[in-house]
Design a protein around this nucleic acid. Structure first.
Lengths: 211, 211
DNA sequence: CATTTTAAATTGACAGTGTCAAGTTGTCTG
DNA sequence: CAGACAACTTGACACTGTCAATTTAAAATG
């Protein structure tokens, strides 16, 4: 079985390949992500990456999972600095969302590109990490939205598995759509309108929602 | 010069290639879009498409432009059936936005994927059509948002080139972000939460905005 | 410690891709 | 009719993902 000590030739090739891929995406754009280029960067043969990740889609999934780690970190970091009010907290999380998309535009767009990744096609390790990391970052936003649902009388969690009223679902869908659309449309440098001096900050948009 | 009559061998290869590309995206997914497959579908040699569009990015730009035609049509069609109020009109345009994304998921995602298309790199015809069509479909949404800006005292258009108050900019940015994020996140079949029975319709979200 | 077994990684090949340079063919102009 | 020019073809190239077969190293077994 795979132990914690150096398992084989390379040591920890999985991580090396993911890091190589992240660097490629960041410095040369998403199109530069290639199994063979990652292999060269990690100093292994051209077919080694496919062996670890069951093909290109597996590598992409692993990179996206790692990206969600950074993404979640950006949101957490912004939120711990926020004022204690619920609104300030949600605003901070969204600013973390936006600032990640701005600082790591290539990676952000890569993460939310349609990759047709079907979890069932991934190998066990890759799938587990992928699902865990993606859910974890989404959960941060959901938690920040939760206080804005219709105030239930603190019922014991016997409603849904997520202890959500349907109003919660509306709120988080609205906030997520808004922040994600804003990030996708305006955080790339291509769209000129976002460079206008009076282009609205996201906080301005958020404050206009009925929460 | 290129006249309206049959210019050369094929007749109208540009359109044939774009149509072939649209069909590939629709039936086999965005990854199946290939210069060579389009060439085969159109019955020409493998290098003919690159000659017309200056490479793959040119073909993509032309397909995106054509996609925006269909996209704009979907929004227009929904809007003409709407009730006469401003709110009903905006809601209808957004429903057109969403229904296009739902009906043509592959194409929609392809259109809004980051393709790193730099208009200056396109040839004249492709660039002109690309800019015209993309702006045209955005304009439909902007027009539907316009009535919700702070009511200026009908000043003669001496403020900005677009005759927009900064409040207009906030409104349309908010609506566009919201509808785009919703479409991107939930109109693909991959995301399970959108299948929940009480998952909110977009109209429900729109009605929560302060307009 | 020696042997077997298993996982990790390599090698070589293949079809498919975008792109480029050069050549060919059809059409229009003067 | 002749030349010019655009549309298209041909052939080649480097690069890609994937696969089967093989080698190598680590671990398990005795």
């Amino acid at each position: 079985m795979k132990q914690a000590n150096k398992p084989h030739h390379h040591g920890n090739l999985r991580e090396a390949l993911v890091l190589a891929g992240l660097e490629l995406i960041d410095k040369q754009g998403a199109d530069a992500l290639t199994l063979r280029k990652c292999a060269i960067k990690a100093g292994v043969s051209h077919a080694a990456p496919a062996h670890h990740f069951d093909g290109l889609k597996g590598l992409r999934a692993a990179i996206i999972a790692h990206g969600h780690d950074l993404f979640a970190e950006a949101m957490r970091e912004a939120s711990i600095k926020s004022a204690p009010s619920h609104m300030a907290h949600l605003d901070a999380v969204c600013r973390g969302y936006i600032s990640f998309a701005t600082a790591h535009t290539s990676l952000f767009k890569f993460m939310f590109q349609p990759h047709d990744i079907i979890p069932d096609d991934l190998n066990d390790l890759t799938r587990d990490v992928f699902l865990e990391k993606t859910n974890a970052s989404y959960q941060i936003l959901r938690d920040a939205c939760a206080p804005f649902g219709q105030s239930k009388i603190t019922a014991p969690e016997n409603l849904t598995t997520d202890n959500l009223t349907s109003d919660n679902l509306v709120i988080e869908t609205m906030v997520w759509s808004l922040v994600h659309g804003y990030a996708m449309l305006f955080c790339g440098k291509t769209r000129v309108r976002a460079c206008s001096p009076d282009f609205p900050e996201f906080s301005q948009l958020l404050s206009r929602l009925i929460l």
